[in-house]
């Protein structure tokens, strides 16, 4: 995974996340939208199989979009961890 920032202002960011697919991007977008301080979060893969996904995030005032993405990805990671714990517990039973 490689991240390239295309455009950044105080409350907006547009960045390319190289080597990723809908698998991570859609879950990440959903995690970003759970954050009340995030105004919009969306991504696009311009041409399937060729283009890299571009993530766009706009936050409400005084909130760094990079911080929002960082928090969303750790939230997603926690959710995965919850699933893994729950799954190994239930699978043993």
């Amino acid at each position: 995974m490689e991240v390239k920032i295309i455009r950044k202002t105080d409350d907006e960011i547009e960045m390319e996340i190289r080597g990723e697919t809908h698998t991570l991007m859609n879950a990440l977008k959903a995690a970003l939208l759970e954050d009340r301080s995030v105004e919009t979060a969306t991504y696009t893969i311009e041409f399937p199989g060729v283009s890299e996904p571009v993530l766009y995030v706009k936050t409400k005032k005084n909130y760094d979009p990079i911080e929002a993405i960082k928090k969303a990805s750790s939230r997603l990671s926690e959710q995965c961890e919850d699933f893994l714990k729950l799954f190994s517990k239930k699978a043993k039973a």
């Binding site: 995974m1 991570l24 879950a27 990805s73 750790s74 990671s77 699933f83 893994l84």
Partner: peptide, 11 residues
């Protein structure tokens, strides 16, 4: 699930 978690951690 581990692969998804790995990528979220990486990001």
């Amino acid at each position: 699930m581990k692969s998804l978690k790995g990528r979220a951690d990486q990001l």
